[in-house]
Every structure is written in C-alpha cells, then in structure tokens.
Computed example of a mutant assay.
Amino acid sequence: MLFHMSMAAERPEQAARMIAELWGGRAYPFPPVAEGSWIAMAGDDRGSAIEFLPLGTEFHEGEGDAMVRDVAGAPVRHGPVHVAIATELSIDQVKAIGARHGAPTKVCSRGPFRVIELWLEGTFMIEVLTAEMQSEYLAAMHFEGWEAFLAEGARIAA
C-alpha cells in the first residue's frame, strides 16, 4: 500500500493545488525537507499524499542517524517515474482541471484498463483513474488478472 510519494515540480504549489483538486483534498506548504515544497493531501483514511519539491531537489542520506537531507542538483525534466491516482471526478472534469493548470490530458488504454494521462508541467505523467477506470484497474491488477492479460498476447506499446 502506498501512503505518499514525492516528485519534483517547477511550480510545487500549483502542482499540489491541482492534485488536491482532483482528490477533493487540500494543499499545504511542506517545509520539513526542502524550502518551497508543497504537499497535496487526499484527506482519506490512509493519509494519501504527494509531496512536490522544487525541481532540482535531490535526496541524500543523512550522516549517522540524521534524516534525509536535500541538496540542490541539476533539474531533470523527464524520467521513467509516474504515479496513478484515483479521483471521484469525471473524465471531463479532470480534463478541465488539467486545462486550467496547463497540464495536457488524454484518455489512454493500458490494455486491461484505461487511464487519463495528465502531464504535470508537460513532463511528469500522472495517471488519473475515474471511478469506472478504478473498477477496470482493480479487475485486472491481481495475479490471475494480469496472468490472463499476458496469456492473451499482451504486447508492449510501440
């Protein structure tokens, strides 16, 4: 089970506010790790959250028992990391929020389920799943469901 994750953003506050809106949650400053960071909180029973740190923030292990420390590094704009989140909103509502925040959106198939790709700052992919998409995901993302998908000849997207 995932409780929270962190990611870099050029505009951490705007990113946190957008995700909080998708969740029906709230966005707050997040000072514990890096100055200028923000957090989107879902307000659910798991404490689901995404921390947004300024682009270029790097985590480094603290000395001894000291906690993680942040170090300014070179900004990385693209990478293989993404996150999938749930929303109670409709496809049109998600697209409208994306448009308001300058985040391109489109509905895509992942084989046994669909997602809305929302591109934070045009570089970080967030898969947003509506209630119907969550049902598709949950029907496929267990051992037997995934093995059946693979047995049907699933292929890597070109």
Score class of each variant (00 low, 15 high):
25 G>S: 11
115 V>S: 12
114 R>M: 00
50 I>S: 04
85 I>M: 15
3 F>L: 02
10 E>C: 01
20 A>D: 14
38 W>A: 09
69 R>M: 06
111 G>T: 06
21 E>Q: 15
152 E>R: 11
51 E>F: 09
30 F>R: 04
33 V>K: 05
75 P>V: 05
130 T>G: 05
117 E>D: 08
1 M>C: 04
59 F>A: 11
35 E>R: 14
85 I>V: 15
75 P>D: 01
90 S>I: 06
10 E>M: 10
86 A>T: 11
99 A>S: 12
26 R>A: 14
54 P>T: 04
96 A>N: 03
133 M>F: 08
141 M>A: 14
9 A>V: 09
26 R>P: 01
118 L>W: 04
66 A>Q: 03
85 I>G: 11
8 A>E: 13
37 S>V: 04
6 S>D: 07
51 E>Y: 09
89 L>R: 15
50 I>F: 13
59 F>K: 05
114 R>I: 00
124 F>E: 01
97 I>S: 06
110 R>C: 09
80 P>I: 12
124 F>Y: 03
94 V>Y: 08
72 A>F: 10
64 G>K: 03
152 E>P: 00
22 L>F: 09
143 F>G: 05
110 R>Y: 14
25 G>N: 13
125 M>K: 12
68 V>P: 03
9 A>P: 08
72 A>Q: 10
14 Q>V: 07
119 W>R: 15
97 I>N: 07
23 W>T: 02
114 R>T: 08
83 V>P: 05
102 G>C: 02
110 R>D: 11
126 I>S: 05
130 T>H: 04
40 A>W: 06
123 T>S: 12
57 T>H: 11
94 V>N: 08
88 E>V: 13
96 A>H: 03
127 E>D: 09
120 L>D: 05
8 A>V: 12
96 A>Y: 00
24 G>Q: 06
47 G>W: 01
83 V>K: 06
69 R>I: 15
88 E>L: 15
139 A>Q: 09
1 M>A: 10
29 P>H: 10
12 P>R: 09
132 E>M: 00
84 A>K: 05
117 E>Y: 06
153 G>W: 03
34 A>G: 07
67 M>C: 01
113 F>R: 01
151 A>V: 07
131 A>M: 12
89 L>H: 14
5 M>I: 11
146 W>S: 08
106 K>G: 04
123 T>G: 11
70 D>A: 13
58 E>R: 15
123 T>N: 11
103 A>E: 07
86 A>G: 10
8 A>L: 06
41 M>K: 10
26 R>N: 05
106 K>T: 02
139 A>M: 08
118 L>N: 02
121 E>A: 08
115 V>C: 06
39 I>L: 05
81 V>F: 13
14 Q>I: 04
115 V>M: 06
55 L>Q: 09
2 L>R: 03
59 F>I: 03
149 F>E: 07
42 A>G: 02
147 E>A: 15
113 F>T: 00
16 A>F: 08
89 L>W: 10
48 S>Q: 01
137 Y>D: 00
35 E>C: 04
75 P>I: 01
9 A>T: 09
75 P>H: 01
129 L>W: 00
14 Q>F: 00
151 A>L: 04
22 L>R: 05
28 Y>G: 12
100 R>S: 10
73 G>V: 11
102 G>E: 02
156 I>E: 03
21 E>S: 13
57 T>E: 10
